[in-house]
């Protein structure tokens, strides 16, 4: 009988184990109450303290391949804003973000229709100005006059005919920029919007990018960071708590927290494989020495 070598397991067994590990929490719901990290809480608190009628600019800079991470972030930021009476201007600096922004907005509208508590109106609570190429130029020109950059919304409606845009000219009328991104667009928002115009910037990025933006928290160049599904699940938990305390209903749609449960089991398995791999490596090394 061939000797079992732990460091030479066929990788396909690892894939199958992780697949089953990720599937299990989807079928048997296990939800973990997340520990809220300070960087996520900072974004939540900032939006929570904005007076009703304030305007935030939400930049949808992600692609379809990262939807499980980024879409819940965008939806929860919008939900939080709408609950507080904060209006949202949506734009996109990536080609793919334009369609996904409308998808996220329609998900939020549907969810709020189910609650039946508040009604979100396009043009009053939310407007989507569409995609523009030339990131840095777009960010800089919003600082001068948003009408020059986006004369119409994505449907072609003149920006001057959109009620929520009546008093919005540039960053002076915007309380916060939130960039939800799967690319390096947050660098541009920090460099050109924060450094040039001093508008507060919050960032929500995929987990791959999250580590890059921690240095900007320390320096106060961003007010907070939502990183990957973990950050998204924390924000979702906070928003759901607000919905529960305001309206007494428990949200059924919890994409980020659901993903986080599956992720926790799959990650535990990966840690286990790393430990097993190391045991195999060191025992092999020991055998060679002998």
């Amino acid at each position: 009988m061939a000797k079992f070598d732990i460091s030479n397991i066929d990788r396909r067994w690892i894939y199958i184990t992780i697949l089953l590990g990720a599937l299990l929490p989807l079928f048997v719901p296990i939800t973990f109450a997340p520990k809220i990290s300070p960087e996520v809480k900072a974004v939540y608190d900032y939006i929570d303290k904005l007076p009703p009628g304030s305007v935030i600019l939400l930049s949808f800079d992600y692609g379809p391949s990262t939807l499980p991470e980024t879409e819940p972030m965008a939806e929860d930021i919008m939900k939080h804003a709408f609950i507080n009476g904060v209006r949202v201007i949506g734009i996109s600096l990536t080609e793919e973000g334009a369609l996904l922004a409308l998808k996220a907005y329609s998900n939020v509208v549907k969810e709020f229709e189910n609650y039946g508590t508040i009604r979100v109106n396009y043009g009053y609570d939310f407007v989507f100005l569409g995609y523009k190429s030339g990131r840095q130029a777009v960010i800089l020109s919003i600082g001068e006059d948003i009408r020059k950059t986006f004369p119409t919304d994505y449907q072609g409606t003149n920006i001057d005919d959109i009620p929520m845009m009546f008093n919005v000219k540039n960053y002076k009328d915007i309380s916060l920029v939130v960039d939800i991104s799967s690319t390096n667009t947050p660098n541009d928002w920090i460099t050109y919007a924060y450094s040039r115009y001093k508008v507060p910037v919050a960032v929500g990025v995929t987990a791959v990018l999250a580590a890059n933006y921690y240095p900007f928290i320390q320096t106060g160049q961003i007010i907070g960071l939502i990183g990957g599904v973990k950050g998204a699940s924390e924000y979702e938990y906070l928003v759901n708590q607000k919905i529960q305390s305001n309206w007494g209903m428990k949200p059924k749609r919890i994409p980020a927290m659901r993903n986080m449960s599956a992720l926790t089991v799959a990650e535990l398995l990966i840690v286990l494989f790393i430990i097993l791999g190391n045991i195999g490596y060191f025992s092999q090394k020991g055998n060679k020495r002998r």
Partner: peptide, 11 residues
């Protein structure tokens, strides 16, 4: 973080 990102796409 990269492992977390890839796994979330799988999920």
């Amino acid at each position: 973080y990269t492992v977390m990102a890839r796994l979330s796409l799988l999920v």
